[in-house]
Computed example of a mutant assay.
Amino acid sequence: MSSEGAFLRHRLPGDVTPVDLERLLWGVVVLALAADIVTTFVGLRIGLSESNPAARGAIEGHGLAGMLALKAFAVGVGLICRLLLEHKYRPIVPAGLAVPWLAATVLNVYAISSAL
Rank of each mutant, 00 (worst) to 15 (best):
V75L: 07
T40C: 01
F41A: 08
G61L: 02
V99F: 03
L97Y: 07
L97N: 10
A55P: 13
G57E: 15
P91Y: 11
K88F: 11
R56C: 14
G78D: 04
A58P: 02
L84A: 08
E60G: 07
K88S: 13
A103N: 07
V75N: 01
F73W: 12
T39R: 00
C81Y: 09
D36E: 01
R45W: 08
L48K: 05
N108W: 06
I80S: 13
G66V: 06
F73E: 12
V42M: 01
G61H: 00
V42A: 06
R82N: 05
P94S: 00
G61R: 02
A98Y: 11
T40W: 01
I80Y: 09
L68A: 03
A69V: 11
V106W: 08
G63H: 11
V106K: 03
L102N: 01
P100G: 10
G43I: 03
P53N: 11
G76T: 00
L84V: 09
H87K: 08
L83T: 13
W101Y: 11
L83A: 15
E86K: 14
G43M: 05
N52G: 07
H87Q: 11
A98V: 09
C81N: 13
V42E: 09
N108S: 13
I92Y: 03
A55L: 14
L79D: 02
G43W: 01
L44N: 01
H62C: 12
V99G: 04
H62Y: 11
P94N: 03
M67K: 09
A72I: 10
T105G: 10
W101N: 10
K88V: 09
A98Q: 07
A74L: 02
L48Y: 06
I37Y: 07
T40Q: 01
A55H: 10
L70I: 02
S49Q: 15
P53F: 12
G47R: 03
I46S: 00
V77M: 03
V93S: 01
R45D: 15
A98R: 04
G57A: 13
N108H: 14
L102F: 06
E60P: 03
L44Y: 06
E50W: 05
L70C: 01
K88W: 12
G63E: 08
R45L: 03
G76W: 02
P94C: 00
L79Q: 04
H87A: 14
M67F: 10
R90Y: 11
F41N: 04
L83R: 15
H87D: 12
G76L: 01
I37E: 08
S49H: 13
N52H: 04
A74K: 09
G66M: 02
R45P: 05
G66I: 06
V106E: 07
I92R: 07
A98M: 08
S51F: 15
A58W: 08
V93Y: 05
L44K: 08
L70M: 07
E86R: 15
T40E: 01
L48I: 05
T39E: 04
K88P: 10
K88T: 06
L97F: 05
A58N: 05
R82T: 08
P94D: 03
L83K: 15
G63C: 11
A65L: 13
H62Q: 14
A103I: 14
